[in-house]
Amino acid sequence: MFALLVYLFLIIPLIIITGAAFGTDEYLRFPPQGFSLKWLANIFEVEMFVRTFKISLEIAVLGTVLALLVGIPAAYGLSRYDFVGKNFLQGFFLSPVLVPGIVFGFSLLNFLIIKYEMPVYTSLLIGHTVIIMPYIIRVISSSLENFDYSIEEAAISLGASKVKTFFVIVLPNITSGVIAAFILAFINSFNNVPVSIFLTGPGISTLPIQMMSYVEYYFDPTIAALSVVLMVMTIILMFIIEKTLGLSYFAK
């Protein structure tokens, strides 16, 4: 009973926001009056939303791909080998998740943009790549752990080199882990605020940042409509995670 109430607390706000997205009123009200899709349509009228959506998508995809390229070998090394300083390096690779985002974002602004005059877009991409890395390493490592090492040894004993074994035997068997890692990383990048907020510049901003500045000035249901779009996206991605990694992964 208590649990149900707590869950109502978790769910109701999201339902309310969904309801509010389809009202006809000029300002946010609940229950909404009437039903219309005009706020949904209005998202596309606000040019900044469309543009930042594209940037967010780009950064999330590029950042995730970069982090995968760097993170998969690292995860492989960390979970398959024994070496000096292993524990320390394991901690180091997971450390971005411990650093407060706001501190990291500010430091990047300071260091990359101001000190070394890096372009804003590049800095934004780098920042996202770094914060994504722990998710990649963690998910890939856990799928490697579920993949018996003796299978790799079998391939090697049959004459395949280590590199070939990785591509022909290991990779095909951890694809669901890679997909899950990709999605988890993608979501975290796409939703990120505290790092992105420092790494915006002329014409460069991300969707969550744009949404935040929008609600400071306007209080119409456009944001609610946009929220619904994002929630639908989350549901789709969650569905994929469930199919690949299993949502119980989060209870660890």
């Binding site: 018996d148 003796s150 299978i151 040894e153 079998a154 391939a155 035997i169 068997n173």
Partner: peptide
């Protein structure tokens, strides 16, 4: 090499 847990490529 024949492994205890077969180690077939799944």
């Amino acid at each position: 090499f024949v492994f205890q847990n077969y180690a077939l490529f799944p």
